[in-house]
Write a protein that binds this DNA or RNA. Structure first.
Length: 415
RNA sequence: GCGGUGGUAGCUCAGCUGGUAGAGCAGGGGACUGUGGAUCCCCGGGUCGCGGGUUCGAGUCCCGUCCACCGCCCCA
């Protein structure tokens, strides 16, 4: 045998049940977004590297070491997208979607790529379904975005805690940052190695550190919520008020920061205790559109991790019953069975035509193996009488009926 | 990128201090020639992840490498 080619590390196939689970998660989320009147945007998988450098942040791990980057034949620096927001914003600006003066609600779905060490629920090609609202600073939008995330979790029966926080704006964040930095510098010696590095690069993340010593320091650190300006405070207050009005449960986490540089004001994460990981996360990014060359445009959104949600989905919707049509006899019977199977399929009935030859006993073993719920044998007698035996494999009951009667029965069960 | 565990049949795994690879399940056939999941009998299956080394001899020991999984970093 020739050498076998395998999947690339961190990449994988989704087959059968796994593929159906993938579709179930994505379709469920799409349905909720569609009924909220979000419009789908289908984006390219690659963008110029600088788009991500400028949006996600030059100093983030994603940009520094996790992107799949390459030069195309024209020498352009290109990256496989590590997330979706940057592309949406680029498209929003490039297509001047702001031109009609309204806000825009967009959603996307697809592969993202990060060159990380693979683990369960974390692959180098993974999938996100995300939503973005561009062109409004109304806290109603913040509340609705979080409500949608909550609806998706509920629809999938996934348990997760919604944590929210506000990161403030251009006016108040610098003051907070200053106070935090000062406090942290006083405790520099007690911080873990990683956090000492973060002190220079991204001090906010220290609040999020899992090392016990750092947690203690974080606990007594100044809280962003105490530093919010009037506008941010009111905004945050409104968001929480609306969420309560909607009955969305959440907890406030003053230590919640996000890893991407572009966030401002509202941030939130839906954390699964079972996984110990975040499954949906998002927030506001009021400056990003402008930073990427568009007009000043407040915006916000979230991204849901499809693989992580898949790990938490326990039950898939049932497929409609499967009918196996079994030809029995010779050429004439095979041909009639072929036609009969397609008659059932015309009616939307999930039907398999047996390609197996041989003993009838083997045909029934085959029916079990493929998980059929019903069989219909098409043989000489059946064709003569124009009556076909519809057998329920679970109850083992068999009734002989004209084809159109069988169609009626199966159709009612095929949703 | 760092630390750890593990890769033997389609699947789950056994294989002692190195001595020529096994079980259960699954699969194929038959007992049972127009009605299945049971039982019994028979059968096929493996470059022991890959490459190198030590050795008369390596699934077993050593080195390297790839992959999966766990933790960290990071993140959805």
């Amino acid at each position: 045998m020739a050498e076998k080619v395998k999947t690339v590390r961190g990449f994988r196939d989704l087959i059968g049940e796994e593929a159906r689970k993938y579709r179930y998660v994505v379709d469920t989320a799409r349905g909720i977004l569609e009924r909220n009147n979000f419009e789908e945007i289908i984006l390219p998988t690659v963008e110029y590297t600088k788009l991500f450098a400028r949006s996600i942040g030059e100093a983030t791990d994603i940009v520094e070491k996790e992107m799949f980057t390459f030069q195309d034949k024209g020498g352009r620096d290109i990256a496989l997208r590590p997330e979706g927001t940057a592309g949406v914003v680029r498209a929003y600006i490039e297509n001047k979607l702001y031109a009609d003066g309204t806000y825009k609600k967009l959603y996307y779905e697809g592969s993202m790529f990060r060159h990380e060490r693979p683990q369960k629920g974390r692959y180098r090609e993974f999938h996100q379904i995300g939503a973005e609202v561009l062109g409004t600073s109304n806290p109603l939008a913040d509340a609705e975005i979080i409500k949608i995330a909550d609806d998706i979790l509920k629809a999938l029966k996934v348990d997760a805690t919604i944590e929210i926080n506000s990161l403030g704006c251009k006016k108040c964040r610098p003051k907070y940052r200053e106070a935090l930095l000062q406090y942290l510098k006083e405790h520099r010696e007690e911080l873990c190695e990683d956090c000492q590095r973060r002190l220079e690069r991204n001090p906010l993340r220290i609040l999020d550190c899992k090392v016990e010593g750092c947690k203690l320091i974080a606990k007594n650190a100044p809280k962003i919520t105490d530093y919010l300006c009037e506008e941010c405070k009111t905004h945050h207050q409104k968001v929480k008020e609306y969420l309560k009005a909607l009955g969305v449960e959440f907890v406030e986490n003053p230590y919640l920061v996000r890893g991407l540089d572009y966030y401002s004001k509202t941030v939130f994460e839906c954390v699964s205790e079972e996984l110990g990981k975040t499954v949906i996360a998002g927030g506001r990014y009021d400056y990003l559109v402008e930073e990427l060359g568009g007009p000043p445009t407040p915006a916000l959104g979230f991204a849901a991790g499809v693989e992580r949600l898949m790990l938490l989905v326990k039950e898939l919707p049932k497929r409609p019953p499967l009918v196996l049509v079994i030809p029995f006899g010779g050429d004439r019977e095979r041909e009639e069975a072929l036609k009969l199977a397609h008659r059932l399929r015309e009616e939307g009935i999930r039907t398999e035509l047996s390609y197996r030859e041989g003993k009838i006993r083997k045909q029934f073993e085959f029916a079990n193996k493929i998980g059929a719920d019903y069989t219909i044998v098409v043989g000489e007698n059946e064709l003569k009488e124009e009556l076909f035996p519809l057998k329920n494999l679970h109850t083992r009951e068999e009734i002989r009926l004209p084809l159109e009667e069988i169609v009626k029965i199966l159709k009612t069960q095929s949703g």
